[in-house]
Write a protein that binds this DNA or RNA. Structure first.
Lengths: 245, 245
DNA sequence: GCACCCCGTTACACGTTGTTACAAATCCCT
DNA sequence: AGGGATTTGTAACAACGTGTAACGGGGTGC
């Protein structure tokens, strides 16, 4: 199953950062956005499974945005708001939100509700014919997110293992953004415990990256796609083009 | 669409009466039930669009009921409970509830959430009315649930054994949702006890899946339909189109 | 009873993946 | 630039999960 991609829309950098990090630590791909424009960029740029939408977006109105979204497409929306009065919650549901969470929220509860909405979406959409196969192209490679396959520039199909696939998905979803080993491990749900004190995940991620490189890099010694950010982690260092099939 | 039919499950006559009346005043058909038995009677007796489920049902456990419901059918459930602590809410979402409302609740808010869940269900369920659907198409295959037959893309009829049929039904009913071996075993009522400690069901499910694959996968070595979710179980990894007969 | 089929069990092969150890690369301080 | 410390790459290994052939018990039809 693909890793859920969650769009976090909040204009407060601190909140955005916190939510993004928390979601990434819990096995999802979090895409931060500060404005409606950024949000729409992500929506047109790739698959999005859920939107966490703050209602107070500077001068933009989250409720209006939600109403428009509802009309346009079928992405589930959870409204996050500091306004918790009943009539305000009702407004949220009226514009088509799938859930309404009051700030400040319990992270565990947020996660539970996110999961509930995701599983429901999966349940209901499973019978619906999927609109587009989500495909990505980078450096001549083609990555088919749906079938978990990678095609080399020469047209040779490369089979990736489960972990390698998940790693590639995680990195592709965050191009040019360095991810720490902890973040990657969380997204892959790695439970490494080799060196519990120093490194929460041991060297598992390093080895995994190495294996993936050996499969998709032309010259694994000089990686062009999966670059190392020394002291930090790894980056997907190439532009990705989503491709509609 | 038709007037929504809402099942109100609560053992307190007063609450039940109040909720029923309120829902009826707001354009829905409310079906009261005091016990799980009554609830099931309504479920088998006619269409039900939403269940409002109290968690404290005398000596019955609402959470357990919800979990079972989730496995059996696709009716949305809103849990209603006097227990409003975060961890209790999370339990509710964990058993698959669509929403969780704390008692005492604001009737208007209840209605808003009911509407939200209903509209969502409507959005997705236009195709889902598969209760009576006996035929499914996937990847060129046709599966006739009534006659327990599978027709290959080339039009060749393939006969499945009893177990294989049950397995296929279970998986087809939950496309894109990974099922654990335990879940599958429970659905098929397998009573394996090979390695009682480690594995409740031994390898029976694995072998069964293998046999089914050899019949319906073009290349059983690279399954396209029945995929393995390593460390978890198996998924029906293809879109299914129900076909009304 | 016999032949046949279904199906759970077992055993073994194989792929996947985390761990370890060591080599190589890089950084930093003087 | 030199040298030690830190970080990263990777080969080798071991543990584990999964695929599957083979076996045999139990059921069914004749």
């Amino acid at each position: 199953m693909a890793i859920p991609r969650i769009l976090v829309v909040d204009d407060d950098p601190e909140v955005r950062q916190m939510m993004t990090q928390f979601l990434r630590q819990n096995g999802t791909i979090a895409l931060p956005a500060a404005t409606e424009a950024e949000m729409r960029q992500h929506l047109s740029g790739g698959r999005v499974d859920l939107i966490l939408l703050d209602v107070m977006l500077g001068d933009e109105n989250g409720l209006e945005i939600c109403k428009h979204l509802r009309r346009e497409q079928d992405v589930p929306v959870i409204i996050v708001s500091a306004l918790s009065a009943d009539h305000q919650r009702m407004e949220g549901y009226e514009v088509g939100a799938d859930d309404y969470i009051a700030k400040p929220f319990n992270p565990g509860l947020l996660l539970a509700r996110v999961k509930a909405v995701l599983s429901r979406a999966r349940r209901s959409s499973s019978l619906v014919h999927r609109r587009k196969t989500q495909r990505f192209r980078f450096c001549g490679w083609t990555y088919d997110a749906k079938r978990d396959e990678v095609m080399s520039p020469a047209g040779i199909q490369v089979v990736l293992s489960r972990r390698e696939t998940a790693l590639l998905q995680t990195l592709v979803a965050n191009p040019h953004i360095p991810l720490t080993r902890a973040e990657i491990a969380a997204a892959l749900d790695v439970t490494g415990d080799a060196a519990p004190e120093n490194d929460a995940t041991g060297r598992a991620i390093d080895v995994l990256v190495g294996r993936l490189r050996s499969k998709i890099e032309k010259n694994p010694k000089v990686p062009q796609i999966l670059k190392t950010e020394r002291g930090v982690g790894y980056v997907f260092a190439t532009d990705v083009m989503p491709e509609d099939a």
